[in-house]
Design a protein around this nucleic acid. Sequence first.
DNA 1: ATATAATTTTTACGCGCGATAAATTCTTAC
DNA 2: GTAAGAATTTATCGCGCGTAAAAATTATAT
Lengths: 341, 341
Amino acid sequence: MSDVKIRNMEEFAALSGISRPTVSKYFHDPESVRPSTRARIEAALEQYDYRPNIFAINQNRKQTKTVGILVPYLADPVFAEFARNIEQRCVDMGYRPTIFSAHGEQETENEILENLRAQKPAGALLAPLGRASDVAAVKAFCKDVPTVLFDSILPDVGMAFIGSDNPQFTRLIVDYLCRTGEPPCFFEMKTPTNPNARKRRQSYLDAMQALGQEPQVFSVDGADWHFEEIGRQGGHQVLRSGEMKTNTVLCSNDRLAIGFLTACYELGLKVGRTEDCAIRVAGQDDHPFSRYTCPPLTTIAQDYDSVSREAVATLFRAIEGEDFPYSIKLFEGKLVMRESA
Amino acid sequence: MSDVKIRNMEEFAALSGISRPTVSKYFHDPESVRPSTRARIEAALEQYDYRPNIFAINQNRKQTKTVGILVPYLADPVFAEFARNIEQRCVDMGYRPTIFSAHGEQETENEILENLRAQKPAGALLAPLGRASDVAAVKAFCKDVPTVLFDSILPDVGMAFIGSDNPQFTRLIVDYLCRTGEPPCFFEMKTPTNPNARKRRQSYLDAMQALGQEPQVFSVDGADWHFEEIGRQGGHQVLRSGEMKTNTVLCSNDRLAIGFLTACYELGLKVGRTEDCAIRVAGQDDHPFSRYTCPPLTTIAQDYDSVSREAVATLFRAIEGEDFPYSIKLFEGKLVMRESA
DNA sequence: ATATAATTTTTACGCGCGATAAATTCTTAC
DNA sequence: GTAAGAATTTATCGCGCGTAAAAATTATAT
């Protein structure tokens, strides 16, 4: 490895003994040049450590190799998991993904979209804030950048939506809970930002009706992303109110459930499905930590892998020029039975 | 808002009635032009929605407005919290931060560093993998990009290191535990990737000696980033071995502690500091979820805010041309007393 | 050996903006 | 009203690379 500093492709081409346009072609696609010239370029590459200037490339290509990934709240392990999964898949496709988080705020989401658009990405994978999103802004973004939405749907925005079949989630776990004990009441935030929450509530009501059970919904205050705290405080409220007609609680998501479990602990209520327990608690999502709560949380596992894979696949079909109508694809969840219910 | 599409600064300048160099100057610093011309530009800006091409800008400026943020594992809420905090501060400084995660792998860390370098960022904030880092690669990166390391130190790499005073953490909690009950044994991973873990162990040994207590260390297997699972399995192992000479366990970090708590639960051991409890468990870090474990985890709170603030401030002093010698700044932790110990 | 196809080289332009120097216009103070 | 100072305009390069067309070279098939 020589330590001669190479300023640009011109210099590198001269040193490798190949013309600049051919070198340029090589960097665009190594397979597109004759094996013998490829070998010469790669030999020079090992000797001189040159990399094309990424800004000059992006300025001149209509399409960059950048992919934007935007999630509503990165400190939420569910989205950290999605981001990690999707990022890896983009890298494998030879693209350069960048992760952004809206931190739960519309203004931030819009700013990120603006900045992202300026980078002319090849595409974007977007889990919008949901109810808190500026739909017009997201739509405008999608007009410029091929975008696939995931996790949280904004109807007819983007090229496709990939997510979880929330009604199925809730049906499945309501069914299980009814089969194994008292029918559950439903614990949720009054004003959830995520549209999935509304679907889960509705699906709870439907499932209970289908089973001939009387539903009971507790909607607690709290509008930000501190779900555990909302679950804990709301849990205290509900548990102390004495209004619960059942010993079983289905939480709208695992993070609320984690907080609810804390409330149970603080009130001295033993949680679980054995005889000596006072209450059963279940969640939805299979949050990465739900295996480690005490007791471990019974929940419905999101199919992170399938959702991520399909979202990325769909985006790249679009990037590669395939034309297809707007579509929605939902994946089913699996019941994860643990001790809490 | 007119829907005339503007191709470049030339066109925009013409439409706003100002010359291109002045417009360019405006975008570089709005304060640098006369108020009357600023008003005219901003009026045109509202009418025509033009944004300078970011690639062209970065190609021509020696220094970009990009800042790279790299953490070892973004799905770990501790690093998600750091990333969020630091990102916000960079935005406030008028820069465009980008978050990357090494996902616990050296190869990924190196690739990110390579890509980042190609982007000629104004600076970088780096929490390296630690023991698993390719020190030479990181050093090479720091030679090209002003870099401040945080959380995990690589001695003499970067312009400065900002982190937590791990010995103080451990001293503080060992002290507390000894004062309020039996002296703790220490629970850790045998081969931690993070150098802080070694400091904590050593500091545990020192603190115990200073207090005239006999130390006991349990080092369990497991080398990846699934700390909770390592804590759980290791917990089972330790608890069943019968080798614990005390009823108090200090875990090297909160994530291990969370897994250890699960092990306790699974073995039917009641955790807490009341008389009816079999064991006390404490962690270190004040992981965002440690408030919600059952029982809530007693721990030492990292000063996320101070570390982030100081790291960003140090970086920007360097970016703005200030010259200073390599320095290390450590922040103290605060004892967070909860029910687990 | 020759014709044909496939690559590579040469040459030249363009992308959108930063930067600079000289010429011009505007501001401010007297 | 005038002169000095500040801001703006005009004109012109340069950044590093994509891209296109024509000319030259090489590889492949007959």
